[in-house]
């Protein structure tokens, strides 16, 4: 008897404080409860991938656009008696080309240094017909590659513009667009979460009309009644989102590592999180809870006002 009484007192206390899961004042409703948790978990799972996509494409865009700011080269191959004239012509031409910051003749020593990894240090450079290389650095908005090629063809037929890094430009903009898509997906996921939680709250408010009536009769104010629903749905959204985030993180962590796939697979396997990226993951359940809090609070207070 005494024992039973003590247990009951503790239960009453927990009831008053509002236990961790939800207020006992509103009866638990098994079906919508599980549905809310499940929906929050699914949304969080998707959010993990959207986040991974955004971060990975962001990284890719940054790396590629760095390469873009690099240099291009002009290679001049011509019969020995013409090469000096053509080189001078190209350098002159570059001086008058808008968008060229710097044009620098790469010396023989430098060329030797570039080649030695492949051919060894004892390469008899002097006996080889090496092309002349001019490194150009872009300035401002960059130069017009097509125009430059046309002028080169006219003035120095042996000169070839090699702007190898330029092909990446469309890829960079594609990566940026993908990143934007990732963030947009996350916004949509947040909005959908808010929608689902709002619908679930409305259903719960309707199902508990009698409970709300009784609470009103004994002097409960709107904020108290709304609070009972808000705490419950916020907790559910948090629990579900936590589970979904953990699951999504595990799946992303199990994706093949970038290095094993080589450079070619970089885009597909670069989806993983690196370093501090992982710190962003706990934000997902927290944001889910925040979204649920805002959605349930607005819905409950509006419904209570309507049903006065």
């Amino acid at each position: 008897m005494k024992r039973a009484r003590r247990i009951s007192a503790r239960r009453l206390l927990a009831f008053a404080i509002g236990d961790a899961q939800a207020d006992r004042v509103v009866p638990p409703s098994g079906f919508t409860a599980r549905l809310t948790v499940l929906a929050a978990a699914a949304m969080a799972f998707l959010a993990v991938f959207a986040l991974a996509l955004s971060l990975a494409t962001g990284r890719l865009a940054n790396r590629w656009s760095e390469a873009l700011t690099g240099t291009a080269t002009i290679r001049i191959t011509a019969p020995e008696d013409q090469i000096e004239a053509q080189t001078a012509a190209v350098l002159r031409l570059l001086e008058t080309t808008p968008g060229i910051g710097q044009a620098r003749l790469i010396g023989r020593d430098e060329q030797a240094a570039l080649l030695s990894p492949w051919f060894g240090p004892d390469l008899p450079l002097d006996s080889l017909p090496l092309p002349v290389l001019i490194e150009i650095t872009e300035a401002g908005a960059g130069y017009d590659a097509t125009g430059l090629r046309a002028r080169l063809a006219g003035e120095a037929p042996g000169a070839v513009l090699d702007d190898h890094s330029r092909w990446r430009a469309p890829l960079v903009s594609a990566a940026r667009r993908l990143r934007a898509l990732g963030w947009a997906s996350m916004l949509l996921i947040a909005a959908t979460t808010a929608l689902i939680i709002t619908l679930a709250t409305s259903a719960a408010l309707a199902a508990n009309a009698q409970v709300i009536r009784v609470l009103r009769l004994i002097g409960a104010q709107d904020a108290y009644i709304a609070g009972a629903f808000v705490r419950r749905y916020t907790a559910r959204a948090f629990t579900g989102a936590l589970a979904g985030t953990v699951l999504g993180a595990v799946v992303v962590a199990l994706l093949p590592a970038r290095d094993t796939a080589g450079a070619a697979g970089e885009f597909l396997t670069g989806l993983g999180f690196t370093g501090t990226d992982w710190l962003l993951l706990p934000l997902i359940p927290l944001l889910a809870a925040l979204v649920a809090f805002a959605a349930t609070r607005t819905t409950s207070l509006a419904t209570l006002k309507e049903r006065s």
Binding site: L13, F15, A16
Partner: peptide, 15 residues
């Protein structure tokens, strides 16, 4: 719990 409910709802500590 039903009997204590008005107190709980009023925000007073029910212990």
């Amino acid at each position: 719990e039903n009997v204590a409910l008005p107190v709980v709802v009023s925000g007073r500590p029910s212990q």
